[in-house]
Amino acid sequence: MKKFLSLLLIGGLAISMVQAQSLDEVLKKYYHNVGGLENWQALQSTKMTGRANQMGMEFPFTMIMSRPNRQKLVVDIQGSEYVEAFDGTTAWTINPFMGGTAPQKKSSEESTEAGKQMFEDDLMDYAKKGHKASLEGEEEVDGTRTLVVKLTTQAGDDRFYYIDAENFVPLMIKTFANTGQMKGMPVEQYLSDYDEVDGMMMPHSMTTKVNGEVVAQLTFDKIETNVPVTDDLFAFPADK
């Protein structure tokens, strides 16, 4: 932890001395400050345990993600399980709110969208992945000066990273909803409570705003890295 603080200090000094920075410089500092690109690229899976605050209620959840794009979120709703998962091909859900207690496969459109959520952030090695990135200038986020990096994925989706100009970690990531009623609406994820996990700086608090309005707040009480995962874990239950 100490090491990181000193790194951050150096980062902070650097910005006051250097006026114009290139995208590569910004990303280099960012990766440096979050524990090094090589560490992140060696990461195979994560398990996050925490609490979700939504509409004034709190629900415990577990989220497991692994390379390349598999994910499973399990929320405990009063003893019933709410599940959102993607097994690499199919997105599925168990949604007790909608009267369903059995797992349901999601639409192909939703599966396509879920498949775009890569375990490794698209910004890392973006060029090799066929994405485009550019430094768009400065903007204030949460009263803090940030450098704005725009990423356009190969699929044509735009994403904006607002990187703290002093500490070089993302304070906010803005995407746009691709499906459903919210299609086209800005979705902002505010990141904070960065803390060290196995040599990497990870946010332990995330607030999601749609069209500027808070829709969910996640607190990660525990983040585990390289947890063992099997295909079974993500698979649609009926296919097991």
């Binding site: 951050l8 949460d142 009263g143 803090t144 703290d164 500490n167 970690v169 304070l171 904070s192 409570d193 960065y194 803390d195 700086m201 332990h204 608090s205 607190t219």
Partner: peptide
């Protein structure tokens, strides 16, 4: 006076 970014805050 400053944004909170590192460590827990609740």
């Amino acid at each position: 006076s400053k944004r909170h970014t590192f460590g827990k805050m609740y």
